[in-house]
Amino acid sequence: MTVQDVLSQFNEIFIDVLDDEDIKLNLETTADDVEEWDSLSHIQLIVAIENKYDIRFTASEMESYRNVGEMCNGILNKLAAKV
């Protein structure tokens, strides 16, 4: 799986959780760029992502991701570690 694959799967999750068809994510997207992305939906996004890839984040990992790209890489690292 590449970063781009994760990104497109992310986009679907975002559209689903935030209930907004117009979301177009890229690697530099941050919470400020998406209108509905607040601390609450952030958690809902995490839960959705964790369930999809069957992984778990720690609180400090969550704090360290500054944009969507870093989050995608974080997931890829976790998936690699799993295998």
Partner: peptide, 8 residues
């Protein structure tokens, strides 16, 4: 936030 995370 920590509570949300804990109970997620």
């Amino acid at each position: 936030k920590p509570l949300f995370f804990y109970f997620r």
